[in-house]
Write a protein that binds this DNA or RNA. Structure first.
Length: 186
DNA sequence: GCCAACGTTGGC
DNA sequence: GCCAACGTTGGC
């Protein structure tokens, strides 16, 4: 789920803990919230139009079928005069904080990760503010966030013969320079 | 600020 | 229902 941190970012979610995801006025995004999301579903909390843009935190769906109150507020920029009280057009979800990630996973880093090939967010012109993410892609991103941004070439702490292995990041390097990208259409 | 890519609107 | 014009998104 995308949001502009200038308006409402991960630190705001840390503060309020739960936030109704109002203001979405795109039917595809609405349909995803209304028809696909279920209570408990994990969410990647993405900062867009940010510096840098990227995945900033984890959240989960707390409530589904939430009527977006802003559609009935004439003073709101999201006011929809055509929406009826008894048949609200804009339905959203309550998003609950899970955690602010230890570090932001920048869009550039996502693009440089082969394991994320095919992710909707990385498609050209993917502007949808609510997008489905596969469990595999979700896990890859969380793993990246849990390891240092710049791998440091120095002695690692001795590894215990570990009990339950911690979920490890994929072997593929994230720092690999991007392969030659298809150029934009002319 | 630029601009590509998209969704929506509305005339016909 | 077509489609041009327009508005918005969002990376850069």
């Amino acid at each position: 789920m995308k949001t502009e941190p200038d308006g409402f970012g991960i630190d705001d979610l840390v503060r309020v803990k739960v936030e109704p995801w109002t203001g979405v006025r795109n039917y595809m995004a609405r349909n995803l919230m209304r028809d696909q999301m279920q209570v408990g579903d994990p969410v990647l909390f993405y900062h867009s139009s940010a510096d840098p843009s990227g995945v900033a935190g984890l959240a989960r769906i707390k409530t589904t079928g939430v009527v977006d109150a802003t559609q009935f507020e004439p003073s709101s920029k999201y006011y929809d005069p055509d929406s009826k009280r008894d048949a609200p057009r804009w339905i959203c979800v309550d998003v609950e904080l899970v955690e602010k990630l230890p570090r932001l996973v920048a869009l550039s880093e996502l693009r440089a990760t082969p394991a994320l090939d095919g992710m909707m967010l990385l498609q050209r012109g993917a502007r949808l503010s609510v997008q489905p993410v596969s469990a595999a892609h979700y896990d890859v991103i969380v793993a990246i966030a849990r390891r240092p941004a710049a791998p440091i070439a120095e002695a690692k702490p001795a590894r215990k013969k570990a009990a339950a292995p911690v979920k490890k990041p994929p072997a593929a390097s994230v720092k690999k320079p991007p392969a030659a990208k298809a150029q934009k259409r002319k």
